[in-house]
Design a binder for these strands. Structure first.
Lengths: 77, 77
DNA sequence: ACTTTTCGTAGTAGAGATACTACGTTTCGT
DNA sequence: ACGAAACGTAGTATCTCTACTACGAAAAGT
């Protein structure tokens, strides 16, 4: 129904920046189109659960580190 | 592309059994149709990331506790 | 035994996710 | 300054997810 807001926030761009890899590299590692990564980072839509699990796996972190129903805090505080 | 198998396994039915709640109760708490929970439990399809995050939140566990790209181990072993 | 709850199956309809192509813009290396 | 790489926008096509209705079967309550 989308009561509060069915938006999923993500830190893909941050994790990617942190590790210095391009969208194309990430997309290739995940086996998806490089534009798909762009759509995800811009929040145009959120990934399937399957993709989300593999993204977290790729970055070697828990799903909640990459995705959240609520906005992530900024780096300071 | 679905290289290996883009199937997502889940333990929704188990968690529900463990806590003694019905599909309808869970569905209501999540704000989804009660049939949707049935489809998920039977693996007819996997939830959106948004739903998956809220399911994990509802059961108060990490996403990886409920969902996995690989089959869960049985209780013994 | 009967009723109610729970679960499964089936079908339609609409929204969302992904692939893909093509072109424009910004950033980076040298 | 130039070319290349990275990023953004736009559009179409296809598949998946979710809602919803209706009906049947199994389990549980009384």
């Amino acid at each position: 129904m989308g009561e509060t807001s069915d938006v999923v926030h993500n830190r893909i761009a941050m994790l990617r920046a942190e590790r210095g890899i391009s969208r194309r590299e990430l997309a290739e590692a995940l086996g998806v189109h490089y534009q798909t990564v762009g759509y995800l980072e811009r929040g145009e839509y959120s990934p399937s659960l399957y993709l989300a699990l593999r993204i977290a796996e790729y970055f070697d972190v828990a799903v909640e580190v990459v995705f959240s129903t609520r906005p992530f805090k900024r780096l300071g505080e």
